[in-house]
Amino acid sequence: MPRYFFNVRHRPGPAGLARDPEGEELVDANAARERALTVARAMIARDRLVTIRDWMDCTFEITDGDGQIVLTVPFSDTVPDADNGD
């Protein structure tokens, strides 16, 4: 299974990217996206950091073993689109 690295962009600039040094093995990019959403939901619900004022400003920049960005998942994707509601 390929390994995906769940880096988090929390501010612009080089200091605003927390690099995931370990990664996780998942079947494909789709599974990586689902994993990112699950983790983001858990972080929004429970984890508080001095560094992060608003989780909704954060984005997963998921890379492969070569360091290439495979997909980006904004934490705001955990919230269903407002215009789908009512």
Partner: peptide, 15 residues
């Protein structure tokens, strides 16, 4: 915590 939160905290202290 989530692993990603641990990564963010490590980065903050390293910064």
């Amino acid at each position: 915590t989530q692993r990603t939160s641990a990564t963010l905290a490590v980065q903050a202290l390293e910064g």
